[in-house]
C-alpha cells in the first residue's frame, strides 16, 4: 500500500504540519484580540501582548458593559436578529411548502418559481433601494433592517427541496383524515423538517448579527444603530461626525483593550453558534452547490 512507503510517510508529517499551521493561522487573529482585551492597558498600548494576556484583568469588559451606547447597540442587534430570523423563517417556510407541491396541486407553481428566481438574478442595487426605503418612510425604523432582505430565495429553495423529499404517503394519510394544507404543514412537515429549519435559522442569525451596511444606510440616529454598525462607525471608520462628541466615548475608544473587548463581544455570538452551524452546513451547501 502506498501509505506505508517512506516517501509518503515523510509527506504525511509535512502535510499535517502545513494543515495544522494553516488552521491555526485562521484563528490566531481572534486569539490575539482576545488576549489584548484581557490585558492591562499599558502593555496593550505598548504592543507587548501576543497570544496571552499580560497583567490579566477584566477592566475593559466592565468598561464596555458600563457604556450605555454599547449596551443599547447590543440590545438593538439582538432585537434585529430575533425579529429578522423569525420573519425570514416564517416567510420562507410557508412559501417553500407551497412551492414543494407539484404543478397538478398548484397550477401556477412555475410562475411563482420564476417570480422568485428572477429576484435572485436581478435587483435594483443600493441606490434605488435606498430611495425606496426613504419614500416608504421606513428610515430610522427596525423594519428597514429586517424587511428588505427577508425573503432569502436560496434558502427557500433548499427548504422546498427538503419538503419535496418528504414521503408523499404521510401527506396523503393526513389528507384522508381531513387535514388541510396548513394542518399538514404544521403537524406533518414541520416536525420532520426541524433540523433543516434549525440550520437555516442559524445561518439567518449569523447573517442578521453580522449585517452592518443597512444600518449605516437606513439609520440616521446613531442611537438606533445595531452593534455591527455601531462598531463599524466608532472602531473601523472612527467616524465621530454622526455621534455626539461624547468625551467618555472618545476616551474609551482610544484604549486598545476596550476596542478589543468590544470587537470580541461582537464576534462572540457567532463563535457560540458556530459549532452547531458547521456540523450542518457542509451538507446543506453541498446540496445546493453541486448537482450530480
Amino acid at each position: 500500500m502506498y501509505y506505508k512507503s517512506t516517501g509518503y510517510r515523510t509527506f504525511t508529517v509535512f502535510n499535517y504540519l502545513v494543515l495544522l499551521l494553516a488552521g491555526t493561522l485562521c484563528v490566531l487573529p481572534i486569539i490575539h484580540i482576545l488576549a489584548v482585551s484581557f490585558s492591562a492597558s499599558a502593555p496593550a498600548n505598548a504592543h507587548l501582548v501576543g497570544l496571552w494576556p499580560v497583567d490579566f484583568n477584566v477592566e475593559s469588559y466592565t468598561k464596555t458593559m458600563n457604556n450605555p451606547n454599547f449596551l443599547r447597540a447590543f440590545l438593538i442587534a439582538i432585537e434585529r436578529t430575533a425579529l429578522g430570523t423569525f420573519i425570514t423563517m416564517s416567510v420562507i417556510t410557508l412559501a417553500g411548502y407551497a412551492l414543494s407541491k407539484d404543478s397538478s396541486a398548484l397550477r401556477s407553481r412555475s410562475v411563482y418559481a420564476w417570480f422568485f428566481v428572477f429576484t435572485m438574478l436581478f435587483n435594483g442595487g443600493v441606490i434605488p433601494t435606498y430611495i425606496l426605503i426613504r419614500n416608504l418612510h421606513m428610515m430610522d425604523t427596525i423594519w428597514a433592517l429586517v424587511l428588505p432582505g427577508a425573503v432569502q430565495v436560496f434558502n427557500m429553495i433548499l427548504l422546498m427541496n427538503f419538503f419535496k423529499a418528504t414521503p408523499k404517503e404521510l401527506e396523503e394519510a393526513a389528507l384522508i383524515d381531513g387535514a388541510g394544507h396548513f394542518t399538514i404543514l404544521f403537524k406533518v412537515y414541520l416536525p420532520l423538517a426541524l433540523p433543516a429549519i434549525a440550520t437555516l435559522s442559524l445561518f439567518s442569525i449569523v447573517g442578521n448579527w453580522n449585517a452592518w451596511f443597512d444600518g449605516l444606510l437606513y439609520i440616521n440616529d446613531y442611537r438606533n444603530y445595531p452593534l455591527a454598525t455601531f462598531l463599524q462607525t466608532i472602531i473601523v471608520t472612527q467616524d465621530f461626525s454622526k455621534l455626539n462628541p461624547d468625551v467618555n466615548e472618545l476616551k474609551n475608544i482610544s484604549q486598545r483593550t476596550v476596542k478589543a473587548a468590544q470587537i470580541f463581544i461582537g464576534i462572540l455570538p457567532v463563535l457560540l453558534v458556530y459549532p452547531y452551524l458547521q456540523r450542518f452546513f457542509v451538507k446543506g451547501i453541498v446540496l445546493g452547490a453541486v448537482k450530480e
Partner: peptide
C-alpha cells in the same frame, strides 16, 4: 389551492416591494 396561494402571499408581497420596485428606480 387558496391555502397555497395564501402561504405564498407574504413572500410575494415582500419581493414585489423590495425586489421589484427598486428595479423601476433604475
Amino acid at each position: 389551492t387558496w391555502p397555497l396561494h395564501l402561504m405564498l402571499l407574504p413572500a410575494v408581497i415582500l419581493q414585489l416591494i423590495f425586489g421589484y420596485l427598486p428595479l423601476g428606480g433604475l
